[in-house]
Amino acid sequence: MKILVTGAAGFIGMHTSLVLLQRGDEVVGLDNLNDYYDPQLKLDRLAQLQAFSNFRFIKLDLADRDGMTRLFAEEKFERVVHLAAQAGVRYSLQNPHAYVDSNLVGFVNVLEGCRHNAVQHLVYASSSSVYGGNEKTPFSEADPVDHPVSLYAATKKANELMAHTYSHLYDIPTTGLRFFTVYGPWGRPDMAPWLFTSAIFEGRPIKVFNHGKMLRDFTYVDDIVQGVVRTLDRPAEPDAAYDGKAPNPATSRAPFRVFNIGNQDPVPLMDFIDAIESATGKIAEKDFQPMQPGDVPVTSADVSALTAWTGFEPGTPLRSGVQRFVAWYRDYFRV
């Protein structure tokens, strides 16, 4: 298939593109290479993809309406994996307009491209952050998600609503995937696995928020990509069992689906830190801090719906995944 992957120079985008390329799909990768974190890391990820003859890269901002319109009209993609976004919960407190431009304006441009160019299926990144103030665990797609605690989370919830509108009005199959704390090689420098590992190697204290009393559904990137690709290969369909008098927010009479995608095994933050310490062979100096604004104490995924739909099964034990990440980090930075 001919597939557009937005955010192809990003963490999950690179890994997803690699799997699609390896199985023989034609991948057009889009990214704006912004400087939210070091663009060199993004260029190094792209270099992994540019070794494939069936990959092309286009530098373009999602918010560029004319550019996005031309891209879809010229390329005629069969399917789209939309992973580009302004990432980061805490940064949304500092620069909210970046989230509106990328996550809202940019998403409308993707939806319009799909609408006018007969795209067969749009798979897009949502986030576990949409559960916000929910305290019932594990999080289920059938739960209401009406209390986001960050603008980032609100934009991801908005994406799901926008996708449903286009599925309903224009019969476009759309599937949203709520990612749960993804980690692994080529990860993001603003996320805990990288922050902890770099601090340990550099002899700096690590900041441990909520005094370490956190549970996270850490999910290894290879498991995430398996779920993304399996979902891409099974376009959303109308739910024959949908009941408008008792609506399930994860399905519809339209070809629309929303799924959790996580490890379904929440880990105490201190256990995750212990795994990094074991992999690095060093003990971290810990600076215990209160909870940060916009954060939540627990994430826990019920992935039974995605398993039933695609056969998705996360299979990477935490310590194995952490060891692979730390080995990659050592190699990349020569430490």
Score class of each variant (00 low, 15 high):
41 L>C: 05
42 K>N: 04
43 L>S: 02
43 L>T: 02
44 D>C: 00
45 R>Q: 01
45 R>P: 00
45 R>A: 05
45 R>S: 08
46 L>G: 09
46 L>E: 03
47 A>S: 15
49 L>N: 04
50 Q>F: 00
51 A>E: 12
51 A>D: 05
51 A>M: 03
52 F>M: 11
53 S>K: 15
54 N>E: 07
55 F>A: 05
58 I>S: 04
59 K>P: 03
59 K>T: 14
59 K>R: 15
60 L>P: 00
61 D>K: 01
64 D>T: 06
65 R>L: 01
67 G>K: 04
67 G>R: 00
67 G>V: 03
68 M>Q: 01
68 M>S: 03
69 T>Y: 01
69 T>K: 09
70 R>H: 10
74 E>H: 08
75 E>N: 13
78 E>N: 10
79 R>W: 02
80 V>K: 03
81 V>T: 02
82 H>D: 07
82 H>Q: 12
83 L>S: 06
84 A>P: 03
85 A>Q: 07
86 Q>K: 10
86 Q>P: 02
88 G>S: 09
89 V>K: 04
91 Y>E: 13
93 L>S: 11
94 Q>I: 06
95 N>G: 03
97 H>G: 01
97 H>C: 01
97 H>F: 05
98 A>Q: 04
99 Y>E: 03
101 D>H: 11
103 N>Y: 02
103 N>F: 08
105 V>F: 02
105 V>D: 02
105 V>Y: 00
108 V>N: 06
108 V>C: 12
108 V>E: 14
109 N>K: 05
110 V>L: 11
110 V>T: 08
111 L>G: 10
111 L>E: 10
112 E>C: 02
112 E>K: 06
114 C>I: 00
117 N>C: 08
118 A>K: 14
118 A>M: 05
119 V>T: 13
120 Q>C: 09
121 H>K: 07
123 V>H: 10
123 V>Q: 06
124 Y>G: 12
124 Y>R: 09
125 A>S: 15
130 V>R: 03
131 Y>E: 06
132 G>C: 06
132 G>N: 13
134 N>H: 03
134 N>V: 06
135 E>M: 12
135 E>Y: 09
135 E>D: 14
136 K>T: 15
138 P>I: 07
138 P>G: 04
141 E>V: 11
144 P>H: 09
145 V>D: 04
145 V>Y: 07
145 V>P: 01
145 V>M: 10
147 H>R: 13
147 H>K: 12
147 H>V: 15
148 P>A: 11
150 S>G: 04
150 S>R: 02
150 S>C: 09
151 L>I: 13
151 L>F: 15
152 Y>S: 02
152 Y>D: 02
153 A>D: 05
154 A>C: 12
159 N>K: 09
160 E>W: 07
160 E>H: 09
161 L>G: 15
161 L>M: 13
162 M>S: 14
163 A>G: 14
164 H>S: 09
164 H>T: 12
166 Y>T: 04
167 S>C: 01
167 S>N: 03
168 H>E: 15
168 H>K: 13
168 H>V: 11
168 H>W: 12
